[in-house]
Design a protein around this nucleic acid. Structure first.
Lengths: 220, 220
DNA sequence: GAAAGTCTGTTGTTATAACAACAAGGAGTG
DNA sequence: CACTCCTTGTTGTTATAACAACAGACTTTC
């Protein structure tokens, strides 16, 4: 894993990162497949970066049922939310889905200006904030797109954002049907059905992942 | 508004804040009821703190339908997500619901270590990160609690977290029925009905805002 | 180019949530 | 106390989403 390609170290050179890592007293640890990396209920002051392998984020309800909340891919930051809220116990468990190596950094050291007053430090903090803000934005958008009670409403909310982003009524979506259904928290087949109806109703046109919001609607 | 009571300035004394504000070149602006504070599509480098009044966060779809996403109360930070992602245009509009005054701070100045290397600065950055992380946690939890397709599943997910937090099967919830229904994105009356059924089924007991998850379930 | 696998769209049935309308129980006020 | 206002719980009806099962199109692989 090349750290300069990660969200957290973006904009920093290899040499600068090496110097930073020393300054941060970062440590690397390896985990075997199945091993718990961070456990629910624990308090962590460490931000993790997954260097290689794969981790899953899961959650247990009080009856012991486990549900998977997401995955951590190489280069991704995790646990930063808990590390940034002093004393907040984790509500999720992170465990290794494969043999995995993790870089841990103490958030206190990341935030405290180092004695060398190194200029890379400022960039690192800014990156950390950007990571947090990005995740925030994505979560807010998902909530917005799933706020409608109807499948059509959810699709329209999502398509509306896609069109805004693309600056055009025509856009590509980055999901296949199953992924889109999961994102909008609806059943795939029912969603496919609704897409057909919307096309029949003249609201949208689509082919594979290319969608078009019909202009006529803008003036209704 | 006493700034030392706000999330962003927590842990700082009045005098320290005054010195910080100068160092940050923060500015205060007033808005009349109905006036737009920050507009969708704009790029902002400013974090806002609402000092007095009330603001609403709203969103327009491409057909011009407006929906209210939330409110900003005195002392609350807003726009920090957009300010922290350089170049990210706002997807929401913030406008004054009453006559309102806002403190704006440039995020670049917040993050750049000031020439005086004032120690309050570090605390401020840490607070900003904490604000971001907190919001993040709340959003993640809401998504988790609304991920079930059934009302019962959503209630159980929420109650499970409440019980965990309380460290007890008995806990108070901070919402009335309508607010809980809104939070879980379900219809109030249907939810009330489901709560009754859950009580009949012996899963929970409740009275007003006091809830009890029945122990028997733990061993099923 | 046949076979297996994946993705997408379609249909019919069933479960369930939304909705509307109302009753009962406080809380607060004149 | 009578009054209104607000919250909560209940019921019946209707709309709609989930679910299951399958067909066709497209990929991938040998």
């Amino acid at each position: 894993m090349n750290l300069s390609n990660t969200q957290l170290f973006r904009g920093l050179e290899e040499a600068e990162i090496t110097s930073l890592l020393g300054c941060l007293n970062a440590t690397t640890r390896s985990f075997q497949k199945g091993e718990v990396i961070l456990s629910e209920g624990n308090i962590t002051e460490n931000i993790g970066i997954l260097l290689s392998g794969l981790a899953v984020i899961s959650c247990n309800d009080i009856w012991g049922n486990t549900s998977i909340l997401g995955h951590v891919a190489p280069g991704s930051v995790f646990a930063e939310v808990y590390a940034c809220i002093p004393g907040e116990p984790m509500l999720v468990t992170v465990s290794a889905a494969e043999d995995t190596s993790i870089l841990f950094m103490n958030v206190g050291r990341v935030l405290a200006t180092c004695t060398n007053a190194c200029p890379f430090h400022t960039r690192l903090v800014r990156n950390l904030l950007t990571v947090c803000a990005h995740r925030n934005l994505q979560l807010s958008q998902r909530i917005q797109h799933t706020s409608s009670k109807s499948i059509r409403g959810r699709l329209m909310s999502y398509f509306s954002e896609c069109a805004k982003r693309a600056g055009s009524n025509s856009f590509l979506i980055p999901y296949n049907r199953q992924q889109l259904a999961d994102y909008l928290n609806v059943d795939r087949s029912t969603m496919c059905n609704e897409l057909s109806k919307m096309q029949k109703d003249g609201i949208i046109e689509y082919s594979k992942n290319q969608f078009l919001l019909k202009d006529s609607l803008m003036f209704q």
